[in-house]
Design a protein around this nucleic acid. Sequence first.
DNA 1: TGGCACTTGTCTACTTTTCGTCTAAAGATT
DNA 2: AATCTTTAGACGAAAAGTAGACAAGTGCCA
Lengths: 318, 318
Amino acid sequence: MTQASYSIKVVVQQTGLSSHVIRIWEKRYGAVVPLRTNSNRRAYSDAEIERLLLLRDATHAGHAIGSIASLPNDCLLRLIKGGSSSTLGDACPEEVQNRCMVAIRALNTRELEDVLQLGLLHLGQHGILERVIGPLAKTIGDLWREGIITAAHEHFASAIIRNFLVRNYKPFSQSADMPTLVVGTPAGQLHELGAVMVAAAANDLGWRVIYLGAGLPAAEIAGAALQNKARAVALSIVYPTDDPGLPEELRRLRSHLGSIPVIVGGRAAVAYAGVIEEIKADHPATLSALSKRLDAIREAAERAPIRAQGNSRTDPQS
Amino acid sequence: MTQASYSIKVVVQQTGLSSHVIRIWEKRYGAVVPLRTNSNRRAYSDAEIERLLLLRDATHAGHAIGSIASLPNDCLLRLIKGGSSSTLGDACPEEVQNRCMVAIRALNTRELEDVLQLGLLHLGQHGILERVIGPLAKTIGDLWREGIITAAHEHFASAIIRNFLVRNYKPFSQSADMPTLVVGTPAGQLHELGAVMVAAAANDLGWRVIYLGAGLPAAEIAGAALQNKARAVALSIVYPTDDPGLPEELRRLRSHLGSIPVIVGGRAAVAYAGVIEEIKADHPATLSALSKRLDAIREAAERAPIRAQGNSRTDPQS
DNA sequence: TGGCACTTGTCTACTTTTCGTCTAAAGATT
DNA sequence: AATCTTTAGACGAAAAGTAGACAAGTGCCA
């Protein structure tokens, strides 16, 4: 069995590391020592490329290469993911949340980023998502409704939190058999923070996420899901709570999607409980519940890999 | 054995490889060894041509011919398909752009991210921003207006490009004396791609960027700028081109901002040239022009640190 | 505070290997 | 006769190897 081997050129392309760095890491720290060809060229295996990716992410996350180069892969993974959640108890989520709100009201980009980063360090990935960003989204929504902060604050916070999540929730090494999840908010819903959180959580759970952002008509959400054979669709509904058009929009979505599971989350979901029930959508109350639900869907799908639903037209592209 | 056989000339035409290359691959690596006629001419079968095509694509993807020539066909296929992140033959921006559009229309998250990453590698930060993402934003806008792609595609592309820029552009070596720039799109303008590009470019030039996202009223943009003592405000205007409310919105912005420089970019800016002139805003035609303008503003500010400038457009941009 | 060692990414100089191209001469095909 | 193929070999640009220098950042210590 001739295992495929890759030249350093290919490794550079795949990792984004320079050949210099790859070589010096090998020389100084023995981070990845590939086999050699007869002519002394380095020949990397898939596993070695994977390890280089882990090292890249770990160093990018602030760890010194010299102190992590000899760690086994699973330790690296823990470093990159929520691993360092040794939960230094001295930073309670409320404190982090408060400081976030101060930074948001001051429109202070740097402060907000710093506080989030600090919170990540102390609370771990799960912690900051569930105990800071989640409540924060709720608070922002409330204050905005009361006119205490403006849409600018809301947009500002959304953008930075989104960036924060993007930067820190690195996509897992994508493999072909990952299930696909389409995430967005339906037409009329303009707050995308909830959707961003769902996307981050699902990504963390090993889903391939197609993030569509805010305010899309049902037909387009459904089109995206069908086009990519999505395993599920997740919507976030925060405000307004009394949109008369939304129930019809949800029904339309269901009729397009056939039997694909739909998950509806967010503060205002209770206000539409009737329709949600009607279209047989899930409504997890917390992020943990959402995670459980996603796991369940994936497991069910793995048990019955080919979806034999009567999906007549796969491409409703006009 | 009615197997069709082809002369080397035919193979050259079908594969695009030169006869020299085909022969040297055979001689050096035994990549494809065709049967011979009685007179010692090479006689290629369909399967051999197929294999040559695979080898061509794999080498084009960055793999060394010497290390792949002996792999079986299915391995080659895997190298080409699985390693799609490295299939960029030419480093020409048009090619990158095309592949981006294909990925966007397929809503293929991974492919789009890979192509962008690869493009960054080949074209550099400046290159990919100006020569890929810029034109891409324009193309997306055009196709959307023509109804060829949907808002979902536009949102999808915006989100991923945004994430890409966030991930790859200088995190922030923020220092206290960096000038502040407020970036967003005015109310009614929903395409945020242009604003994202401006934010990335400005960040790269050493500005502290406050990114507000799309669709904000003038009062809030101005509020954010004043609250943070912004040195300038940049707006992106792409569509619609005939919003009757927009001129008034821009005038309102100017009256709130006092003499703070305003920069208006984007495809539709020409449609509002009158107001832009009226409120003494800049309208750089390209990203380079924008960069120059930002540099000029910063220099002017450094020379006169306290903002007492009666700024009346120092740069008569075409 | 300055000095010193250590870390880490980048860069240069130089050699070897790889790989596509080219030439020349001879045989085959049209 | 003119054009193609084949073979063998030579050539040069690009890629990849090694060794070592260097600068910026960091931490420690007097």
